[in-house]
Amino acid sequence: MELRVTNLACARGGLTVLEGVSFTLRPGHALVLRGPNGIGKTTALRTLCGLQPALAGEVSVPPESMAYAAHADGLKATLTVTENLAFWAAVYGTDLVEDALQRMNLDALRDRMAANLSAGQKRRLGLARLLVTGRPIWVLDEPTVSLDAASVALFAGVIRAHLAAGGMALIATHIDLGLDEAEILDLGPFKARSPRDGGPASAFDEAFT
């Protein structure tokens, strides 16, 4: 199975931000999305995950194969680290909680309320959720925000292991994760054209010029 995206166009707030996005991602590979703020990295990722409809284009893989990690971690402050993870493991029908705790270095924090975690620890817990989904394509939106250098390296190792096991990763990030397997896709050329340049009538927004 490979992820093939053809001529994807997507909109944010009713305005087209990206059009003609095409790429292919093969198992064992990662694709890093680059581009300035506002270019539509998050919008593209949410569209691929099925959270919003695409305006045009085709995605060869259904959203059911993707595990999405957004800016927000989706943690419940009054549940413990283990309870937070166990909930998602139950939702996805896996029993990988222990494995995820070990691999994201959360074992020592397992019985602590999520409210009492530091920002970086919360992020690690949010990312540990990816491990319990068991889904092949990880869709990561700025995964390294608030992680220290050691944690970034730890998470890069986790991604590398996921890729080595035949998984895929689609990452929007400004930081170099040090992944040799990763290709880089600059979204700049796919910015939606303004109507004057032949783009769709709804595409233009002065914020993106």
């Binding site: 949410r46 959270l51 993707m66 999405y68 957004a70 927000a72 989706g74 943690l75 419940k76 959720r129």
Partner: peptide, 10 residues
């Protein structure tokens, strides 16, 4: 807290 997004993709 973002869990609704995650539930929608679950």
């Amino acid at each position: 807290d973002g869990s609704l997004d995650l539930l929608a993709t679950a």
